[in-house]
């Protein structure tokens, strides 16, 4: 489904991603772990099309199609979804209006009729319940004044509404209390499907107890330095990143390379 080959990306002239290779097949769940500043969010943002980052080398294809040629909105319509590590607050745009506009943009792209306000309201209420978010949050500005955990649930709500082919979840588990972690995990597991892949960035093994990954990768210094099965996560939890030749706290790209 997703194929990343020798991907290099930089920001303001500084190289952050230094040759990423990754293959994800439909139905698989991949976890990416790695020290702070190693480039996990950068990879996620580059895949979603954030133009702050410049791709200097390499290629990415989604179901054979060159992803890097597409605008952000086209990528989304082709099925890429990124749950942001830091969801953006947009006061003045209601969450409901935002969600409906997004869902209808997707529907239009697929040649389906738009949903009217009433139909959408019904759907949005149902899905809100699924992530345990009070429907009152639909009326508020997008993420405006939401707590950290509420923002993360709002991200999963969007994923459930948009039904992407590839869901990239950037630390959707951080900042969640134990109950919220359950809720979010349930949401993510509800996304698991034969024809869908999930790439999740996390620091914690505990998420992986709820959402069992097929593969675990370690991203350090802008490269994937180790890949393995779910047991790799347990090993990392025990031993840290040091044994991989990566220092825990000193993991900026320059330091790691």
């Amino acid at each position: 489904m997703l194929s990343i080959k020798n991907l290099h990306a930089s920001v303001e002239g500084e190289e952050i991603l230094k040759g990423i290779n990754l293959e994800i097949k439909a139905g698989e769940v991949h976890a990416i772990m790695g020290p702070n500043g190693s480039g996990k969010s950068t990879l996620s943002q580059v895949l979603a099309g954030n133009e702050t980052f410049e791709v200097t080398e390499g290629e990415v294809t989604l179901n054979g199609e060159n992803l890097l040629d597409l605008e952000t909105e086209e990528r989304a319509r082709e099925g890429i979804f990124l749950a942001f590590q830091y969801p953006v607050e947009i006061p003045g745009v209601s969450n409901l209006q935002f969600l409906r506009t997004a869902v209808n943009a997707m529907r239009t792209h697929r040649g389906e009729p738009e949903m009217n306000a009433a139909e959408f309201m019904k759907l949005a209420r149902e899905v809100s319940k699924q992530v345990d978010l009070d429907p009152a949050f639909l009326k508020r500005g997008v993420n405006e004044g939401f707590s950290g955990g509420e923002k993360k649930r709002n991200e999963i709500l969007q994923a459930l509404l948009l039904q992407p082919k590839l869901a990239i979840l950037d630390e959707t588990d951080s900042g969640l209390d134990i109950d919220a972690l359950q809720v979010v995990s349930k949401g993510v597991n509800a996304l698991r499907a034969e024809d869908r892949a999930i790439l999740m960035v996390t620091h914690y093994q505990r998420l992986l107890n709820h959402i069992v990954p097929d593969y675990v990768h370690v991203l350090a210094g802008g490269k994937i330095v180790k890949s393995g099965g779910r047991e790799l996560a347990l090993e990392l939890e025990e031993r840290g990143y040091g044994w991989l030749g990566v220092k825990d706290e000193e993991a900026t790209p320059s330091a790691a390379s």
Binding site: A48, E71, E73, R75, A76, I90, G92, T101
Partner: peptide, 24 residues
Amino acid sequence: KISLFYLVSRGIGRREANTLLTMA
């Protein structure tokens, strides 16, 4: 720019995203 990216990353077109933000 970040708000705009957030909106278009959900499949919302540029014009509509700009409009939403300006109306906001």
